[in-house]
Structure formats: C-alpha cells, structure tokens
C-alpha cells in the first residue's frame, strides 16, 4: 500500500450491481464500500450469486447494471468497466490478484514453480533472469514452500502447496486487492488451518484488501472483518463479522448459522 493513499477513501466502491443470465438472476442490486486493509467475506449457499458477484467485481464478467469503481495508487477513481480493456487487464496483473478455488485454473501447470511466480513480473517488463529468480525464491520462502522445489512443476505439488504457490504468484507484483473464491475448498482441516494462518499473516503484513467468497462460516469468521450474506442473488444481511454471526437478524442468516455442525 502506498503511504500517500488516503486511508479514509474506499479502495473499491460498488453501486447497484446486478447481473442476469438471460432472464435468470445472478445477483441483484449489490452495493458496498471496501476500505484499504479491509477483508470482506461473502457467504451464502451454493447458487446464491456469490461467484457471479465476485466475477463482476474482478472484471471478468461485465454486469448488466451498476458500476464498480476502483481507486488507483494515486487516488484517482476508475469505473473498471469504462476503462480500456488493456488498462483493465493491466490492473488485473498488477494491482489486483485472483486466487481461484482450483489451483489448476490459477496456475500455469506446464512450467516450473519459479516461472509461475515470475510470470507477472515478466508481464510488467522484468527482463533480468537473476532478479526474477531471487524474487521468486523470496516468495516461495514467504509461503513456506521449500526452495529446492523452485524448478519443479506445480503438478508435482500437493493441493495445499499449489494453493500457496497460487498466492505467491499473485502477491509478487505487490497487489492492493485480492479476490479469493473458496481458497480453502478441497483442503483437509490441518492444511486449511496452515493456509488460513498464512493468509492472515500476509494480509496483516502487506495491508491487503481482500474480498473472499466462501460457504465456510468458520473461514469467514477467522479471516474477514465484515460479512455479507447472500441468498437468491440478494444481499440479505451485512455487518461486522462477529455481529452477523453471533446475532443474526435475517431468518436466512439465522438458518445458516444454526446449520453449522460442531465437532
């Protein structure tokens, strides 16, 4: 995060965002502000519009209505669907990061771990092999992957390592905003716990803003400061995470919270 940035200005402002798949509703009239350093959780059951919303926010799926305004490092606001496609893709490579649920979608499986981390640097003009490699090493270290694996293909990594590699690959250009879609989906609990621990540390250390979509309320409680609960494309409740989970107001949120199994 750049020091000159005014912390009281939202990083991302969303107004009246709706998306329809033909006549089918994806998400409807979503609006919120995301401030620097803030982690926003989006929870809800399958088909509630979480992933549609995340795609609209991360400039993958143009919404039917509404706007997404991002404030860049100089403090200038940009409507991400009004700027040119090249600027939008540049934003996705530099200021933003996207961590996919399935690391296969977010990694380049045919090239080594080092090349995966280096790709974004090369995409923004890094042309010094030694520099790229030492940066890749430092990020492998940060996400707790053995440096000896730098030239191995990601296909030889375990699920948890692939997910950490994906995080390193995204963070190497020092983004300000990370989108995560079920980052712990498909991982067993101990691996999940380590990943969450790592994420929490990185978010705090780098001052990242994060929008995280999950159906796991425990993950949401651990990571996010604020929570939005979605049902049938609508945001039915939002507020501070502890407040929403400890004192749910909407009947659907009450159902969701009471449905969690305790071991």
């Amino acid at each position: 995060m750049s020091p000159e940035l005014d912390q009281s200005q939202p990083l991302l402002t969303v107004n009246g965002l709706s998306h329809y798949y033909g006549s089918q509703l994806g998400c409807s009239n979503v609006g919120f502000d995301l401030y620097p350093g803030e982690v926003l959780g989006i929870v809800g059951e399958s088909g509630s519009g979480k992933s549609t919303l995340l795609k609209c926010l991360s400039a993958v799926l143009p919404p039917s209505e509404g706007e997404v305004i991002y404030r860049d490092r100089t403090g200038l606001p940009h409507d991400i669907y009004q700027i040119s496609e090249s600027a939008r893709r540049m934003l996705r490579r530099t200021d933003w990061g996207v961590v996919e649920q399935n690391p296969r979608d977010g990694l380049r499986l045919g090239v080594s771990a080092g090349a995966n981390i280096g790709e974004r640097m090369m995409a923004v003009g890094a042309r010094h092999y030694g520099g790229i490699r030492s940066e890749a090493e430092s990020w492998l270290d940060k996400v707790e992957i053995d440096l000896g694996r730098i030239d191995d293909l990601p296909t030889t990594f375990s699920g948890g390592m692939q997910q950490r590699l994906q995080i390193a690959r995204n963070l190497v250009t020092r983004p300000r905003l990370i989108f995560m879609d079920e980052p712990t989906g498909g991982l067993d609990v101990s691996v999940q716990a380590r990943l969450l621990d790592l994420l929490r540390g990185l978010v705090a250390e780098l001052g990242l803003s994060v929008i995280i979509v999950t159906h796991d309320l425990a993950v949401a409680r651990l990571l996010s400061h604020r929570l939005m609960v979605m049902q049938r494309g609508q945001v039915v409740e939002s507020g501070l995470t502890d407040q929403v989970l400890d004192d749910p107001q909407h009947p659907y949120t009450q159902l969701l919270v009471s449905s969690v199994l305790l071991p």
């Binding site: 893709r89 090239v111 080092g114 090349a115 790709e119 090369m122 995409a123």
Partner: peptide, 30 residues
C-alpha cells in the same frame, strides 16, 4: 504457452508478451 486462439489474438492486440519470457525463463531454469 496459450492454446486459445481468441486469447492469443487479444494478447497480440494488447501487446501482452510476458508469457514469451516465461518460456525462456523455463529454458534457463532447466
């Protein structure tokens, strides 16, 4: 590096050639 024709044309149009160096990086690493 990119099997999709739609995507490669877009990469040419927007001059996104970072992946070419990924291939060369991979050569040096190996």
């Amino acid at each position: 590096m990119e099997p999709r024709e739609v995507e490669t044309r877009k990469m040419h149009a927007l001059r996104e050639y970072g992946v070419m160096h990924v291939k060369l990086y991979e050569d040096i690493a190996r």
